[in-house]
Design a protein around this nucleic acid. Structure first.
Lengths: 342, 342
DNA sequence: TTGTAGGCGTTATCAG
DNA sequence: CTGATAACGCCTACAA
């Protein structure tokens, strides 16, 4: 089959040790010898076997990424940020998705043993106990948006409560009185925190809250669409809809427009995440910006640190800011038009 | 460090062979013994080391995916399709992006040696020669949307020419006379084929072609935005804009609306790809549907086949259909409203 | 049903 | 500067 280091050594008339030195710059090799080895290697199409290499070095140069899903721009951005930062640090990434239940995560985790130097885990539905039980001992981990408490792990999160709170406050300040919310997936920590922020802001403003204005959703466009359809039939009808993410907000806008309802004149719409497409909607979507790719990047940076310190570092928990981005969909004065830089 | 098979064997009072049998169901083991081994393994948090395993079995259960970029919904969908199909076949995926020049691809390819059982390569800028020169001998490969001719490799592509052709024909049939195009990235095979389709359709219809109506672009929203701004200043002004992908079409629509230009009344807009967001635009975007996730899935299926047959199979080239999807952005009669199933 | 031992392709340690 | 050679963790005949 494919050439091994021994084949190269033999063909070049040297020992495997010398070949290894050439490929790793791990020791002095005479120029002439080096040249000959490289030549032979090229001719034989030799390249070192990663598995064998990581067996001896105990390093894989690979980071695992566990995601609940791969659908939509949110995850796409996370991966982009992860990949970019990983590349900067000389790592590859092993992606694994569809992990919504603890058992699947555990399985994926054990499957990654020996294939990755560390893992970024993003899972709405997992607790610290299950996690540390199923973690292949000593595998560095960084949690992303996991509703895990305690300081056992490095963890990065988003200021969901604060973001939702400031959005609702903005809607109130714009004169909206009947503010509905389309919630995120049940059991999802982000979703729960955003809902809390919504409620808190309304209570603080002394604005009426109605149970039927809290629609369920699942973070997908479709659910935003159907939720908005239902909200339109309510009486009194909401004059603002705050969706727990942009995808659902987009679905909602689509439903409103299909029903001949003007946005923002009749109903304001707001989202959360600021996915790239949001600025291109018509009207452009008011939302909460979180630096999604940056989130992925920071996770990798933390992971690289953990890997480097052999896990003997103090754990760090960080919450990333969520910033209000006012565009036209909520009726505020025309802001900068779409097409501006990211 | 982490427990090895030997630790488990010792603790359970058996040989490593027996432990191995339990974890691979590769031989008979007495129930009682099996139970004990599993118990010990759990207590020790043991799970087999992937690197060591693939060293002996010569299998990694991992497929590599080489992409030029990770930005936007197109790649997100490709990865989703790849991941899903890979999972169905029991494979993990190793993602590597930012490969626009041959040398980078070669580097990524050699880095994957011993870490993957096969690779899906999607790269606009690579030819068969460079490829086979740099391929670690005997590594199964499937090409995705590569402008590579010949039958040396398994390859999947999209009917770019046909798709563009039918779109332009549709615009012509709808009464448009001055049809502009925003092109895709220079040097990209898909982009070139779509441009050819555009030109051919116009020529066939006997409609005027103007050099200044062929704007350059790079597949990103922003370039669609700026291209549209320029087109608006032309005289005579185009009454239709066909963008080489949806992202640019969306950017273009945004520019038109910002300029107070009505879509589709004043200018029709059409895209290519049918990314998920297209149906939610306002107006919903007329485009060419290609099953992006399906494309990724088929690539994996082909790759799995190649891996299974140890590369001793006949190479297959396949072109996936590109189907016209009429929505409102081109002025055709109101089609089904957004929110319908994918 | 279980154990022994060789080997997978590299790297790393010691001698020369 | 270069060469032997022992790990690395696991699988897999082959024996028992």
């Amino acid at each position: 089959m494919a050439a091994t280091i021994r084949d190269v050594a033999r063909a070049a008339g040297v020992s495997v040790a010398t070949v290894s030195r050439v490929f790793n710059a791990s020791g002095p090799v005479k120029d002439e010898t080096q040249r000959r080895i490289r030549e032979v290697a090229l001719a034989l199409r030799y390249s070192p076997n990663g598995a064998a290499r990581s067996l001896t070095t105990n390093r894989t140069s690979t980071l695992g990424v566990l995601l609940p899903d791969l659908y939509g721009e949110f995850f796409s951005e996370v991966i982009r940020g992860v990949d970019q930062m990983a590349q900067e640090h000389g790592y590859h990434i092993l992606v694994s998705s569809s992990h919504n239940v603890p058992s699947e995560i555990a399985a994926a985790l054990t499957a990654m043993r020996g294939r990755v130097d560390g893992v970024v885990i993003m899972s709405p539905a997992i607790d610290a106990a299950t996690l540390s039980e199923n973690l292949p001992a000593t595998l560095p981990v960084v949690l992303l948006n996991c509703a895990v408490e305690g300081t056992e792990f490095d963890a990065l999160g988003i200021d969901n409560f604060g973001g939702a709170h400031s959005m609702v406050r903005h809607l109130v300040d714009s004169g909206r009185k009947r503010i509905a919310m389309i919630c995120g997936a049940a059991g999802n920590g982000d979703a729960a925190a955003r809902l809390q922020g919504y409620r808190a802001a309304l209570d603080e403003a002394g604005i009426e809250r109605r149970h039927e204005w809290e629609m369920s959703g699942d973070f997908l466009e479709r659910s935003g669409f159907t939720a908005a359809e239902r909200l339109l039939r309510l009486s009194p009808r909401p004059d603002a809809i705050f969706a727990a993410n942009d995808s659902m907000a987009i679905g909602a806008m689509s439903a409103l427009q299909a029903a001949g309802c003007r946005v923002p004149d009749d109903v304001a719409v707001a989202g959360f995440d600021d996915i790239p497409i949001s600025r291109y909607m018509s009207p452009p979507l008011t939302t909460i910006r979180i630096d999604i790719a940056g989130l992925g990047g920071r996770a990798v940076r933390a992971l690289v640190r953990a890997v480097g310190s052999k896990n003997a570092h103090e754990r760090r928990q960080e919450t990333l800011p969520a910033e209000l981005v006012v565009r036209e969909s909520c009726g505020a004065r025309h802001a900068a038009t779409a097409g501006n830089g990211r």
